[in-house]
Design a protein around this nucleic acid. Structure first.
Lengths: 244, 244
DNA sequence: ATTTAAACTGTCACTACCGACAGTTACGCG
DNA sequence: CGCGTAACTGTCGGTAGTGACAGTTTAAAT
């Protein structure tokens, strides 16, 4: 059971947060499993459109260009199913359920990619969605057996990597590099997000109302916003204040 | 590897959607793994409170009563960590990081429950959070080894069961069932989150300032909040308004 | 020992927000 | 047609938030 051991070791590395670079994670996954390609996508559903927040993959620039130029995202059933649900999405299953998506799989074969794989939906706090898609280079029967054995590993690995991505980039460049909020500023914002007035926050924190205003003003300045409402919106979006 | 086989079989059952009853799932889990008790909780972060949407567990009525009557939810670090993050939460880890939570673990020992276990956060679409907590009856060392081997199984099982729960019930008391925001209410909230005043929003939308207030008041009522700031915080958390 | 940052406070004047009063208009559905 | 729902508007009075004025204190880092 050397393979089993390798898998468990890898999962342990991930759980200890030892892997935040997508490239590193992809390498680790390809070394541990018989995976041909990986893709990690984080997006926000906006109306019926998708706003892509993060995208990392190993398919290469050529494949990406094909995908983009032919507007394959419009017909990609894997995107639709994985970002809209919470269950693993089997590529061939998606293919059969959506006859319109053939151009996608034709394009894959055209550039020599396998059409076997699975996509794992990864819901995030704050309504964002992500997915990790795994592409394998094996026969259908082989894949069925391999998948049965390793889906649990894929799922845990995907969850842990996703967690690392969320924690890591909770404060994307702009905020971490720019002025960070102090403890009090965060506290005051948190209570404001809970609907408390200055007077209430002052009472809760045991300080004067003026001081609450002081922290709030500093927070507004640091976040570069004009109102408490906007500040809280920003803070929630960037996970600067706790959800619960 | 009979145990391995049993695990894989169970996961397959779950993936085929063959288990939507919590009681059934719990039985299946306890038969397959060396798990003493399970708890599944689905909640919405609501202001500074938690609104519990669904709760199923095997701890029994007595334990539940103890938990409720002593207000242990206020100090439960597992709730806090699992509903606020995306990583598995080890019970002993949580215990060490939050010294205030001793009464919780004392109560557990008092009624003969083990204090070893793990809680798996399960984010759902639409900003809701859930968790599956697993309680085991083994020594710390035993648990460490067992956990290492089976965390991946727990995670996949939790995800699949959670998926079944989401697909199955029509969310009693959730946002979808509760009053939904209308188009204008969403628009007004969106602009408020962008820091616009009533007057500005009125100008942007080409309506009167009073009407903006009208929509905002309706939104506050529907979201059950007391200020625009809190409304925007909720809306962002629940992905009711688009991210800028 | 000086600098830096965080935490803290007071007052004035203005603007924005918010609840409660009481409506009108337009559209779809049974 | 009546019913429900979404969109829309006016006015009053009180409370909450915001900017600009001008500070003190404490603790850690250089």
């Amino acid at each position: 059971m050397t393979e089993q051991q390798a898998v468990l070791d890898m999962l342990e590395i991930l759980e200890c947060g030892g892997c935040v670079e997508p490239a590193h994670f992809f390498t680790l996954m390809r070394r541990t499993f018989r995976i041909a390609h990986l893709l990690y996508l984080e997006a926000e559903p906006y109306a019926d459109e998708l706003k892509i927040c993060r995208l990392h993959h190993t398919f290469g620039a050529y494949a990406a260009e094909i995908y983009r130029s032919r507007n394959l995202h419009r017909i990609d059933p894997i995107l639709k199913l994985a970002l809209g649900g919470v269950r693993p999405v089997e590529w061939t299953m998606a293919r059969h359920r959506f006859p319109d998506c053939e151009p996608l799989f034709e394009a894959a074969q055209e550039i020599g990619l396998s059409t076997e794989g699975v996509a794992l939906p990864l819901p995030s706090p704050a309504g964002r969605m992500a997915l990790l898609a795994l592409n394998v280079n094996m026969s259908a029967d082989e894949w069925t057996a391999y998948r049965r054995q390793h889906l649990r590993d894929f799922q845990l690995a995907a969850n842990l990597f996703h967690a690392a991505m969320l924690e890591h980039a909770a404060m994307p460049g702009a905020f971490s590099a720019r002025e960070r909020l102090t403890g009090r500023e965060t506290e005051v914002l948190t209570w404001a997000a809970a609907g408390k007035s200055y007077w209430e926050i002052a009472t809760i924190l045991g300080i004067s109302e003026r001081t609450v205003r002081f922290f709030m003003t500093n927070a507004r300045r640091k976040l570069n916003v004009v109102s408490n409402t906007q500040a809280v919106a920003q803070a929630v979006r960037h996970a600067l204040i706790p959800t619960v």
